[in-house]
């Protein structure tokens, strides 16, 4: 299992629609709308790196997405 964070910047005025589209994408485990340098942080859970590419592709297809940065998780501690 590979988990990654994808940090997304969107073009102003598109957030509601973009989130709606992204909620339909299957491998996305969490969508957080944030205030700061980015607009949306998405957590993705996939079986392989190839599938990660597919998910990033799908996110790129969503209307209003300006830029994405993928951060693959190497190690994690969580409650």
């Amino acid at each position: 299992m590979i988990s990654a964070y994808i940090l997304i910047s969107i073009r102003p005025g598109n957030s509601d629609k973009a989130i709606k589209e992204m909620r339909k994408i299957k491998n996305i485990a969490k969508i957080s709308v944030v205030a700061g340098d980015y607009d949306i942080v998405v957590r993705v859970q996939v079986k392989s790196l190839e599938n990660l590419l597919k998910v990033t592709d799908k996110i790129h297809m969503v209307d209003g997405i300006k830029k994405t940065t993928t951060q693959v998780i190497e190690k994690e501690i969580a409650l």
């Binding site: 951060q71 693959v72 998780i73 501690i77 409650l79």
Partner: peptide, 24 residues
């Protein structure tokens, strides 16, 4: 560093990542 971050109260997830940043 990861362990130090984890020991901060209120932190409930520490991920070491490859990319622009080192930790999220």
């Amino acid at each position: 560093t990861m362990r130090k971050l984890w020991n901060i109260s209120g932190v409930n997830r520490v991920a070491a990542v490859a990319g622009d940043y080192d930790f999220i």
